[in-house]
C-alpha cells in the first residue's frame, strides 16, 4: 500500500507511537509490529471484533469506532474493546410467544431503564440510533424496531456507553427474529416448493442431468435462455 509517509503521533494504551497518516487504526498498529490475535476479525467493518474507544487531544468527547474502518488522527489516544460482557438470555422463537411485549420485558428487564440520553446513538459505528429502536420495541412496533436495527454489527459499543445498562443489540436481535419469523407471513410458494422437494419431485430430473453426456450438457448450457436483466426494474 502506498501511503503518505508523514508520521503522526497516536497513543495506544497510553504509549506514544508515530505512525503514517492515512492508515486505519488496525493497519497503523500492524505497521508498528503489533500482531493481532484478539480484536481483529473480518477487517471489513462487518464483525464488530475491533470496537475501539478514543479521545483526540484535549477534547473532552469520547468517540467510538471500528479499528478497521477508522483512520488515525494526530493525538488520538485509544483502546480496543475486543469483548464486551452481555448477559445470556435464553429463549426460543416459536408460536408460544403470544404476548411479545410481555416476553420482551421478561427477557430484557433493563429495557425499562432507558433514560433517553442518546449516548448509544453517538457510539454506534453504523450510525444507528439504539435509543429509537429500543423505544419502538417498547411500543410493540416490531417492524420499525427490526428495520431501525437491521444494520447492527453487534459490536457492543452502544452497550458499553449505555446509561441504563441496557444491551440494546441483544434486544434488537430478539425483536428481529420474532418479527421475521412470526409477524411476517410466510410465502406460500416457499412452503409448496419445500413440500415438492421433500416428496422427491426433482430427484429424477436432476439425476437425468447428472448422467447426461458432457457434450449434451455443454449444448444445453449454451442454449439457456436468460431472464431479462437489462433495464432491471422492480
Amino acid at each position: 500500500m502506498n501511503v503518505e509517509e508523514k508520521l503522526i503521533p497516536i497513543y495506544y494504551l497510553g504509549q506514544r507511537y508515530d505512525v503514517p497518516a492515512g492508515l486505519t487504526i488496525m493497519t497503523a498498529l500492524e505497521w508498528l509490529g503489533y500482531v493481532y490475535t484478539h480484536g481483529c476479525g473480518c477487517r471489513g467493518g462487518a464483525c464488530g471484533a475491533c470496537s475501539t474507544m478514543y479521545r483526540v487531544g484535549g477534547d473532552y468527547k469520547l468517540h467510538a469506532g471500528l479499528a478497521c474502518q477508522t483512520m488515525v488522527v494526530p493525538g488520538m489516544t485509544l483502546v480496543q474493546i475486543p469483548y464486551y460482557p452481555r448477559p445470556v438470555t435464553k429463549y426460543s422463537i416459536d408460536e408460544k410467544i403470544t404476548d411479545p411485549s410481555q416476553v420482551l420485558l421478561r427477557l430484557f428487564p433493563a429495557i425499562q431503564k432507558c433514560v433517553g440520553c442518546g449516548a448509544c446513538a453517538r457510539a454506534c459505528p453504523q450510525n444507528l440510533r439504539p435509543i429509537d429502536y429500543v423505544a419502538a420495541a417498547l411500543r410493540g412496533q416490531w417492524q420499525a424496531a427490526a428495520d431501525l436495527s437491521f444494520d447492527c454489527l453487534m459490536c457492543g459499543l452502544c452497550a458499553a456507553r449505555c446509561t441504563g445498562e441496557l444491551v440494546p443489540h441483544s434486544i434488537a436481535m430478539f425483536v428481529r427474529r420474532y418479527y421475521a419469523k412470526l409477524v411476517r407471513i410466510k410465502p406460500q410458494y416457499l412452503v409448496d416448493r419445500s413440500n415438492e422437494i421433500k416428496s422427491g419431485k426433482f430427484v429424477p430430473g436432476v439425476k437425468q442431468l447428472a448422467t447426461t453426456s458432457l457434450e449434451e450438457l455443454r449444448r444445453l448450457y449454451d442454449a439457456r435462455s436468460f431472464e431479462n436483466v437489462d433495464g432491471n426494474k422492480h
Binding site: I93, R176, R177, K181, K186, F202
Partner: peptide, 16 residues
C-alpha cells in the same frame, strides 16, 4: 436439491 429447504430453514430461524 436442498437449497430451497435451507432458505425455509433460515427464514424459520428468524432471518429477515
Amino acid at each position: 436439491n436442498d437449497a430451497p429447504l435451507i432458505v425455509e430453514w433460515l427464514r424459520d430461524l428468524g432471518c429477515m
